[in-house]
Design a protein around this nucleic acid. Structure first.
Lengths: 152, 152
DNA sequence: TAAAATCTCTATAGGGTTAATAGAGAATAT
DNA sequence: ATATTCTCTATTAACCCTATAGAGATTTTA
């Protein structure tokens, strides 16, 4: 399951991307505004935005008229990165992860482990979608990036 | 993440499938044997097998020489079913699930929800793999069923 | 019939994670 | 200066995951 936190993070980022889309000159958006418009608990959102900032996805400005803005173009912010950041690896098993591989403690023979093999395929398919879908793919109702088979 | 419980369940089922493969006449396999050979806590495995039985994946026999056996051919037992049974829906959001759809409580407009749209694609891709890979696809080192692109 | 082996079932408990809240601190604009 | 805003550390309540315990029911065998 996607955590509530990751969902809030995505909502905030999409909101920031839209704010940027609306005007050429983008002033920072305050936490309070994002929280109110996206139905996210304000104090919780503070933590999330701070984390996004520390990982370079958003920029912050303090003081009056301060707030948050995307740190890079929406084209460069991918679902996969956000989810990894908040919820950890996309793979459903550590041993099936590409970016955060760890051996399973109780694994007898990784090479022939069927569970690993199948879940690695699932990971690759998921990452194939999430690492190719960016905020920009999602801004105007379109979503899913260059993925085939979604009926468009 | 795949729960430990689901991992144990898969291990037990694969073990039972192999036991069946070895001899034409398959006697039931005791919990104790599965637990020992697959490094699964015995009492925990009891709960798991009971659950698998209630859902019709395995059969049980009581008394001396009792134990468990698959309730159907390995060809008919899919990864997707087992994971759904133990861990719940494959989708990472209730609103992206096909078999267990639920609206998100705080969703403003589901039709245009980008998060939902993307995670639905991920679900479909995952289910496409997990619902086509059965125990039989995995018995002899082969794994992954009729899925393309895994280098075989 | 008694004993042994095995599955069945309900209850419970410890540890970790998640979601959220609180409150003091630091920076900035006016 | 003062108001506004982000920054940071702590804390908490609820929940879920993993596992264990123990009594009960069923079947085989002697």
């Amino acid at each position: 399951m996607l955590s509530q936190k990751a969902k809030y993070a995505m909502r905030a980022l999409i909101y920031l991307a839209k704010a940027r889309d609306d005007k050429a000159d983008t002033p920072p958006v305050g936490i309070a505004e994002i929280a109110a418009k996206q139905a996210v608990p304000r104090k919780f959102l503070e933590l999330i935005l701070l984390e996004l900032k520390r990982h370079g996805l958003v920029q912050s400005y303090r003081g009056k008229h301060g707030g948050y803005a995307l740190a890079k173009a929406p084209e460069g912010i991918y679902f996969g990165d956000v989810i990894r950041l908040i919820d950890g690896p996309l793979a459903q098993l550590p041993c099936a992860s590409l970016t955060a591989y760890r051996r399973c403690a109780d694994c007898e023979d990784e090479a022939t482990c069927a569970i690993r093999h199948v879940l690695k395929q699932v990971r690759d398919a998921s990452a194939g979608i999430l690492d190719r879908t960016s905020l920009s793919d999602v801004l105007d109702g379109r979503s899913g990036g260059m993925v085939m088979g979604d009926g468009i």
